[in-house]
């Protein structure tokens, strides 16, 4: 049954509210939880649900996404049969149409014709959750649905399951029907299909703004949510890095935090998410922050409610702060000096 499902990830979404973090990268490649990228969640869920063929439809700034996914090896998708496929959008200036653009699919219709799977799961790239899709497919078939949408607390997660032959019809008839994507169909109350909903009960967040990103990150410090996301039997895979274990030096103090590998910590860290390869200097205090890969925070700094994008350097004695509702975001690769923000 499992191998009847095809995975389709729409990675074309662009949220204005996440501008600060998506200038250099596609939304799908936004770092999360210290060592992951947003796309890791949906991609791992697909793989853990037995999906063996995954197509990614990216649009903006997908270099970082390609670099992250590579051949798909880390998700066990570097296969001779099926595996990982990339279909970048040929239409760069056309406006964005919501999840599952039929135009974008039409340009790559052969993928749908050639694959042997009978059903397709079309998903966005920015939902953080850990879900097995097998029961969704089982119910879809048993209940005779045309389209199943997955909901969380009654709200759609913008993930759709549809029979592949029906999907191909939808794509081919987009001119006559006027539907430009799956979400168009679902939101039209007069659509001709049997629509089913599947309620997902685990933790799930759609990241669409800096605020939701910040909250979703801080929620990781809540053990029940953490346990919901990181199940041993359904692991979230990501690109592996050969970082050494994290080094806690004399005089450091770390509490209520999530820390990835390769860090060297001498300062104080509280309620924060620290990514791979971060250096935190002596007498520095980091509270309620998200610190991405390879940042260096020198001695005597105070940071509260700040998001540091990758490769940021914070010089000695710098104070930076935001608020819970409006965290201060520091762009990738920049240098923050003590005098710059005073």
């Amino acid at each position: 049954m499992n191998n009847h499902l095809l995975g389709v990830i729409d990675a074309t979404t662009y949220h204005e509210g996440l501008d600060e973090l998506t200038i250099h990268r596609s939304l799908a490649a936004v770092p999360f939880a210290g060592r992951y990228r947003l796309i890791d969640f949906i991609l791992s869920n697909m793989v853990n649900s037995g999906i063996e063929s995954v197509a990614i439809f990216p649009k903006y700034q997908y270099r970082s996404l390609m670099d992250h996914l590579g051949s798909g090896k880390n998700w066990d998708l570097n296969r001779k049969r099926d595996g990982l496929f990339f279909f970048p959008s040929p239409m760069l200036d056309s406006p964005n149409n919501g999840i599952g653009s039929f135009n974008h699919f039409a340009a790559n219709i052969d993928y749908f014709y050639r694959s042997s799977q009978d059903y397709a799961l079309i998903a966005n790239c920015f939902t953080i959750f850990n879900m097995d899709f097998t029961p969704v497919l089982e119910r879809h078939i048993r209940a005779g649905c045309d389209i199943t949408t997955i909901n969380k607390d009654g709200q759609p997660l913008e993930i759709y399951l549809v029979k592949k032959s029906l999907l191909i019809n939808m794509i081919l008839s987009r001119g006559e029907t006027g539907y430009s994507c799956i979400s168009d169909i679902v939101s039209d109350i007069h659509h001709p299909y049997t629509l089913c909903t599947y309620e997902y009960t685990g933790a799930a967040v759609m990241v669409d703004s800096v605020q939701t990103y910040f909250h979703a990150s801080m929620d990781l410090l809540n053990p029940p949510i953490w346990k919901d996301l990181f199940l041993i039997e359904q692991p979230i895979f990501t690109k592996v890095k050969d970082e050494p274990p994290t080094r806690y030096l004399n005089g450091c103090s770390v509490q209520n935090s999530i820390v990835a590998n390769g860090c060297q910590i001498e300062g104080k860290v509280e309620n924060s998410i620290i990514s791979r390869g971060v250096k935190i200097g002596k007498n520095t205090i980091i509270k309620n922050c998200i610190v991405m890969q390879k940042c260096e925070i020198q001695e005597g700094c105070v940071l509260d409610s700040v998001i540091l994008d990758k490769d940021v350097k914070v010089e000695k004695g710098t104070h930076l702060s935001g608020t819970e509702t409006s965290p201060f975001v520091v762009r990738k690769g920049t240098v923050q000096g003590a005098l710059m923000n005073s």
């Binding site: 060592r35 592996v240 999530i258």
Partner: peptide, 9 residues
């Protein structure tokens, strides 16, 4: 493949 380390309050 393991998630990052969690240091409790």
């Amino acid at each position: 493949n393991h998630p990052p380390q969690y240091i409790s309050p």
